[in-house]
Design a protein around this nucleic acid. Structure first.
Length: 767
DNA sequence: CTCGGCAGAATTTTT
DNA sequence: TTCTGCCGAG
């Protein structure tokens, strides 16, 4: 009944060319409150659509409303909609919000999920076409790395010179680009260990197959291969999906792009949503190009821009827009807001070192909290994880509650992975990788020699390790000690496997952990972390209760590497800029805006201007997380790998429009020169011509002003000013000196005061 | 087999 | 500086 009352008016009103103004009164409630562009993005169902959704423009709302609309109007069944996100969180949120919009829970949206979850689903259905069984295990990074290491060792390659890590990056890179071993070009395949790259990739893939396992990359790569090789299967999917939707399109890589192109096929009801200005994962294979060329890929695509921002103040938007304008490769959007009140200016503050920076952030946060703001509405966003330490120490000292978002994830902790490995072997006795992980955890006297023997036996008899262990334990090939250890372990697993059929998985897990001696070993461990580990294991067992079966739990774990943390305590948020994407906070602290750190020197060295632009987008993401206020800061000195380094303010600071910022310098800032009074002056008259003149005059005597310094750093990093031998330079910490040698971006400088030192060229300017 | 000491490396990481 | 991973001694 409800279906019919919806379908007709909507078809009449929106299916054709009827202008939006003549909408019938009977408009579904979920469309109310959308602005014109959002509405258009929801209603443009036919044909390809690109929604360019700037930060804070209501993207998620549009996306969910669009899906709800398709469902409510019965244009497609839930099972005929493909909706892809990057994170489980986004998928979950989408499900919940659609449910809220159309009432009740959303049943049957089996194809709403992450690229990987959907890929796994497809691969399980056609596993045999990829040389796998449908119950294949999904390997995470850790497993993957260990496997690659084995392959490298088996090839007698010196793992020192050719680390598995590097090979993993290569393989991932190929998989991200949709390349099977045979597709890797001759020259690319030459990489690694004197031209063995492609061979190793091939061997690794073969090992995966023999272990009945797939890594994350395979979850996309294998379906692509299946689609390409089996037209009838591809056809089935193309017919099934009447509407397709992809979130965060700017983050798709080549493989995901190919996968989508195949699946969307002739049916072009494909809607992609993204923001090129928020593309911050190019280093992980994402191709901003995908979004930039969407209109060419899908001719006639409708492009809808969401530019009206509902999140931030005009001052914040002004600062963010000013910054991102410096990027050349962008589709171009300008965020605007109806808000009259400019809001607080972005505060930019220079400090002496990271410790002072942390002190400042903590005291600002406490100030705000005293005024009634919640810690949970504030976030500190750092470029790199190592910056967190300073803040954590300060917060602990002050007793400020904080939470690290996205840090080492629950399922990546060693004890959790060990427990899972046990369970994996219980669930699937042939999971060799898992078995190997726990064969000597806790220590049971099985070392390299025994494990080697076990491997040999397994290979000779063509058996999984667990079964080989059983046989070897019964034979007399090994020393008595190792033999009984092996046989005990095999017996335990046989016992647990029996129990698995009888007991709920949580109980089973408890038994396994106790009987294996794992918990006992932890209890005996006197290190300070042991207690927390036991706590984590308890948490793991608890979380298992919610699942239907052990298998369901394990599938969940391999794809969804996270656990809900439902603590409602009021804590300050601390995370990397990457982890902050998609989140918003009243107050945002952006520390560490220094040349070399942010933008990161390494990114600029490796990726040149493209790298710099990505760093700038990262800054843009950081700025646009804030609703009300932003505190940017930079330290003159910072300890990097235990060495003190001096740094100049980030060029990004110079790119923030002066109208929207408030500069404050601290006592002791750039300590050696500038008294307290001068610094006060610096703070209030940062941009006045008079101040600049004064700085210029002083530069003769004491060194360049901060503004000049920033300008010079920018010039040097963009190649305008490189250093030559004999050149006179100024270093912020050590003063004047003369360049005596240049090696890449490092300089050997004879300093007038400090003697000869090696410094990064980013830290000195021409004098 | 296990533990201790030492060399070498140290961004970002949705799955 | 701090962590990790490897090698040699017990």
């Amino acid at each position: 009944m409800a279906a019919n009352s919806y379908i007709d008016p909507l078809d009449a009103a929106f299916g054709g060319e009827t202008p939006a103004e003549r909408r019938p009164a009977a408009e579904p409630a979920y469309l109310r409150g959308l602005n014109a562009e959002q509405r258009e993005a929801v209603l443009a169902l036919d044909g390809p659509v690109l929604v360019l959704a700037g930060a804070g423009t209501g993207k998620t709302r549009v996306l969910t409303t669009r899906l709800a609309h398709i469902l409510a109007t019965r244009r497609a069944w839930p099972s005929q909609i493909l909706a892809v996100t990057f994170t489980n969180k986004a998928a979950r949120e989408m499900k919940e919000r659609i449910g809220a919009l159309i009432g009740g829970t959303v049943e049957g949206m089996q194809w709403l999920g992450t690229f990987h979850a959907i890929g796994a689903r497809i691969l399980r259905r056609h596993a045999e076409l990829a040389g796998l069984k449908s119950n294949f295990t999904i390997l995470d990074q850790d497993d993957q790395l260990r496997l690659i290491k084995q392959v490298i060792e088996a090839e007698n390659i010196d793992e020192k010179r050719w680390p598995a890590r590097t090979m993993a990056v290569l393989i991932d890179g190929w998989k991200n680009r949709g390349l099977l071993p045979k597709d890797v070009s001759e020259s690319d395949g030459q990489a690694f260990a004197f031209g063995k790259g492609r061979k190793l990739y091939e061997l690794y893939q073969a090992r995966l197959k023999s272990l009945n396992a797939a890594d994350f990359g395979d979850l996309l790569l294998e379906p692509i291969a299946i689609f390409k090789g089996n037209h009838e299967i591809l056809d089935e999917y193309q017919k099934r999906f009447r509407y397709m939707l992809v979130d965060e399109y700017q983050d798709t890589n080549v493989a995901q792009y190919l996968w989508l192109r195949l699946i969307s096929g002739a049916n072009k009801n494909l809607c992609v949503v993204g923001d090129d200005d928020q593309s911050i994962y190019a280093w992980r294979g994402a191709e901003v190009e995908n979004i930039l060329r969407f209109e060419r890929d899908y001719p006639g695509a409708k492009v809808i821009r969401l530019e009206r921002n509902y999140r931030s103040t005009p001052a914040i938007l002004g600062a963010a827009s000013g910054l991102i304008k410096a990027n050349a490769a962008r589709l171009g959007k300008t965020l605007w807001t109806e808000s009259e009140d400019q809001g607080e200016k972005v505060q930019v503050k220079g400090v002496w070192d990271a410790e002072e920076e942390a002190r400042n952030v903590a005291s600002e946060a406490e100030n705000l909290q005293r005024k009634g703001h919640k810690f949970a509405d504030m976030a500190i966003l750092v470029r790199a994880a190592f910056q967190m330490r300073e803040f954590e120490e300060r917060f602990i000292a002050l007793g400020v509650p904080y939470r690290v978002v996205g840090g080492p994830r629950f399922y990546e902790r060693a004890e959790i992975r060990d427990a899972l490995a046990y369970l994996r072997v219980v669930a699937q006795g042939d999971d060799d990788l898992a078995f190997e992980r726990i064969i000597n955890k806790p220590k049971r006297g099985l070392g390299d020699a025994s494990i080697q023997a076990l491997h040999n036996h397994a290979r000779a008899a063509d058996l999984p390790l667990l079964m080989a262990a059983e046989e070897l334990g019964a034979s007399d090939e090994l020393a008595p000690r190792a033999r009984s250890a092996l046989s005990d372990l095999a017996k335990s697993f046989a016992h647990w496997q029996q129990q698995a059929a009888l007991l709920p998985q949580a109980e089973l897990a408890e038994i396994v952990l106790d009987e294996s001696g794992y918990t006992d070993a932890l209890k005996a461990d006197k290190s300070p972390e042991a207690a927390g580990r036991l706590e984590n294991l308890k948490e793991l067992v608890r979380s298992m209760e919610e699942f239907e079966s052990l298998a369901a739990f394990l599938e969940h774990v391999s794809l969804v590497m996270e656990l809900e943390n439902n603590d409602s305590e009021d804590r300050l948020n601390l995370m990397t800029l990457h982890a902050a994407k998609g989140l918003e906070f009243e107050t945002v602290f952006l520390p560490g805006w220094e040349e070399g750190l942010f933008p990161s020197q390494r990114t600029m060295d490796e990726k040149g201007n493209a790298g710099l632009e990505e760093e700038r987008r990262l800054a843009y993401v950081g700025l646009t997380r804030a609703k009300k206020r932003i505190f940017v800061s930079f330290a003159a000195n910072r300890r990097v790998h235990g060495q003190w380094q001096s740094a100049l303010p980030s060029r990004f600071i110079g790119e923030l429009p002066e109208a929207h910022i408030d500069s404050v310098a601290n006592e002791g800032f750039y300590g050696n020169y500038g008294s307290f009074r001068e610094n006060q002056e610096f703070g209030s008259t940062y941009s006045s011509p008079g101040w600049r003149r004064a700085q210029e005059a002083r530069a003769q005597a004491r060194g360049p002003s901060i503004i000049e310094a920033t300008a010079k750093v920018v010039a040097s990093a963009t190649g305008v000013a490189k250093f030559g031998n004999g050149e006179r330079v100024f270093h912020q910490k050590f003063g004047y000196g003369r360049v005596v040698a240049v090696e890449g971006n490092k300089l050997l400088v004879d300093l007038e005061k400090a003697g000869s030192k090696r410094v990064m060229d980013g830290f000195v300017v021409k004098a």
